[in-house]
Structure formats: structure tokens, C-alpha cells
Design a protein around this nucleic acid. Structure first.
Lengths: 208, 208
DNA sequence: TAGATTGTTAATCGATTAACAATC
DNA sequence: TAGATTGTTAATCGATTAACAATC
């Protein structure tokens, strides 16, 4: 796939999609403008128009964007017209929280498997899912084919599990483990470490 | 506080801190170089040196950086020489996961309160914390003073709660709610929405 | 001394913004 | 028609990188 669209632009598309969906569902709004959308998100209207212009012409002079149409286009661009099966690795508190979060379904994802290496957790049911032993990982992925995994395990074992996931063809990993993961080209990784985020913010705070 | 150091630089400091801590604790390493650190993190050595140079001269030509000293300096810069009290809003699965996560303590934070608006959850104990009713928010913050809150509640009520937090003087918010929050200048917000992250990654994936 | 690595400068690269013709 | 807003261009702004003198 030809790709010279900046990563940073791609990263904003889901933000636009989220805001547009909210306008449609919460406020039953039919159209919007780059100005209104930008105001709502703290982003300049010029940037929004520039970002969208990488992919086509979705608006009309004078009236702006039809929300339903733009939502549909963004979903197409982001490959969200299919539902993605997701494997959760780790059945601790966070793994359970992910398995029980009902915000995935309407936005393109379904948690389908949850794994743990603790025999005491294997067999537990959570939101209709049964915790499988991590050693069934390879077999399960081979059988069903999965592209996305979420890592909800300690840093210690995260790189090992990542290597196994990559070996099985996983192409996107969302990691809650507090460390940098090494992956080959072609594998996407997103990091979500609450402490790192908070440490960034404390820079701007004054200790009491 | 004078501040023309780019946000993006501040955002990398906790990443450096995390990697350095790992070198020290996991591998008992005493020194490192910008080259080694960069290799480990997928960041250029020039960028690391440039970033650090905003704050002082921490290395020695020929030998690199003393890890313990650099860790200490980064902690000072990020205001992590004090421990920050954190309020968690929302005692659902995610709120409980946060309350039980043991990765905060060693990195500068302590979850001290957890709130919910569901009477059925108020009074529940989790990891030594008792869930308080959200209506006790103002009183509790007024009494103890808190600067950081984590939002683990649905989008619907997130802006309302944010307004209340800001009113009480909260200066940093880590939000797991899938929406953009409006806050006045001087209040830091970090977003952590797993779906947004995954939607960014699916752009690069090929639907099967 | 020889080798390694810093901190910094200048050049390059990339992203954001202002402005506006086009047009609904 | 008058007003609003797009998509795009060029200018500005900011971040990254390459290179190297300084020096441990």
C-alpha cells in the first residue's frame, strides 16, 4: 500500500471520527464545518481540512461536511468497515476490565480471546469469554487468524509474548506494559502506560 | 515557570526514565550512552542528547551517562521527588484495575481515593481503598488537596465530572473516557482510549 | 595517547497556518 | 446575489538529524 501520508495525520482521523459520531448520535446533527469540528477538538480548521484533503474531497463549499458521509469515509479509510477480532493477553484486573468494556463493539473491534499463564485463572469466565492458557496462543491464532492483540501483562514477560505474537502473524499490538517493545517492520505498536502519561503531566505541576 | 521547552521533548523524558530504570534494576548497569539508549528505544542518539541538553549537561565525553545520576536528574525535572496523590473517578472494572495496579508506587504516584456515583458500589473495598460517593468529591479534595485525577467513567458524564474536578483545583487529568475534554489553560489532560489507538493501527492493516 | 562520546551548531526535513480563489 | 466554507498554495514555524570540535 502506497503510503506517504504522515503518521501524525492518521492518528488524528480516529479523533475526528469519534467527534463526528458524537455529533450524529448525541445531538442528531447532520452537517458540520472544519471550524466547528476544530473548535470542539482544539485543532485548527486549516489542519482538519488539510488532513482530510490527503484522502479526497469530502466537503462542500458554503455548507461544510455531511456528517454521515464523512463518518462512512473515515471508517473506510481506517479499515473499520470490517470488525476486527482481538486477543487480550493477561487476565488480571486490566484484562478483565478490557474483556468487560462495552466500548469496542460499536467502534470496530471484538474481544474474542483472553489468555493467561496462571493455571488458577485458566477456565475463569468473564463476560462470556473463557480464560485460556497462554500455551494455547499459537494454536488458537493458527486456527482463527487474529491481527490485533492487547498486552495486559507485566513488563517482565512482555517482550517474550510479543515475539510469540509476531511469530504468529499479529500485526498490531496495544501494550499496557511499561516498556518499549522491539518488533520487526510492518508490526504496529501503541503504548498506553498510565504512569508515563502522568509523569509527563507532573512536569507542568508545582509540588505542594 | 518559564517554559519554552517543547511538549514533545517533555513527553520523551518519562520514556528515558523508564528505560534507564530498567537498565539499572534489571541489568544492574551503571553507565550508558545516548547511542545505547537510543538503540533500545528506537530513537536517534542525537535526539536524546538534544532533549537532555535543554536541562543541563548530564554526561561525560568518552564515557556517556551515569545511570543513577541521570535517573535522579530526570526525576527532579519531572517533579517526581515528591509522591503524588491521585483520585480515581469511577469504580467499574477499570477503576478497580487502577486501584489494584502496583506499578504506581515505585514511579511517583499513589492512588488515594476512588469515587463512583452508583450507591451499590459505594462502600466496596478494593486494595485497601473504600469506594466513596462522587458527591464527597469536593469535600475530600478540599480537605486533602489533590492535583491529579484519573477518569474511568463513561463519556456521558466525563465533561461534567471534569468541570467539577477543575473547579476544585485539579491540574492534571488522565482520561480513559472516549471524548475530548474542555479544560481551561493550566490544566493538563492526557487521553488513553484503547479504541482510538487501535483504529489508528488498523489503517496500516489489510482486512482479511 | 587513542578511542569514545558528549553538547551544540547548522542544515535538513516535516508539519502547521494564513490566506484566498473557487463555488455551493 | 451575499454569505459561508471548502481545498490548496505558499509562507511560517518547529523538530530532527548530521557533523564535529571539545574533552573525558
Amino acid at each position: 500500500m502506497t503510503d506517504d501520508i504522515p503518521h501524525i495525520v492518521i492518528g488524528r482521523l480516529p479523533i475526528y471520527l469519534r467527534a463526528l459520531t458524537r455529533m450524529a448520535e448525541e445531538y442528531d446533527q447532520k452537517t458540520t464545518s472544519s471550524h466547528e469540528l476544530g473548535e470542539q477538538l482544539g485543532i485548527s480548521s486549516a489542519q482538519i481540512r488539510k488532513d482530510l484533503s490527503h484522502f479526497g474531497e469530502f466537503g462542500k463549499q458554503g455548507t461544510g461536511y455531511h456528517i454521515g458521509y464523512l463518518i462512512d469515509q473515515l471508517q473506510q479509510i481506517l479499515n473499520l468497515h470490517v470488525e476486527w477480532d482481538v486477543a487480550v493477553i493477561g487476565a488480571g484486573h486490566l484484562g478483565h476490565a478490557l474483556a468487560n468494556y462495552n466500548g469496542f463493539g460499536h467502534r470496530g473491534f471484538r474481544i474474542r480471546w483472553i489468555f493467561d499463564n496462571d493455571p488458577a485463572k485458566v477456565g475463569q469466565k468473564t463476560n462470556g469469554l473463557v480464560v485460556q492458557h497462554i500455551d494455547e496462543l499459537e494454536e488458537t491464532i493458527k486456527e482463527h487468524g487474529a491481527a490485533i492483540a492487547i498486552l495486559a501483562i507485566p513488563a517482565k514477560s512482555a517482550q517474550d509474548v510479543t515475539d510469540r505474537l509476531v511469530k504468529m502473524g499479529i500485526k498490531a499490538i496495544l501494550s499496557y506494559a511499561p516498556l518499549h517493545l522491539s518488533v520487526p517492520d510492518g508490526v504496529e505498536v501503541s503504548y498506553s502506560d498510565p504512569v508515563t502519561e502522568m509523569q509527563r503531566m507532573t512536569y507542568y505541576l508545582t509540588p505542594k
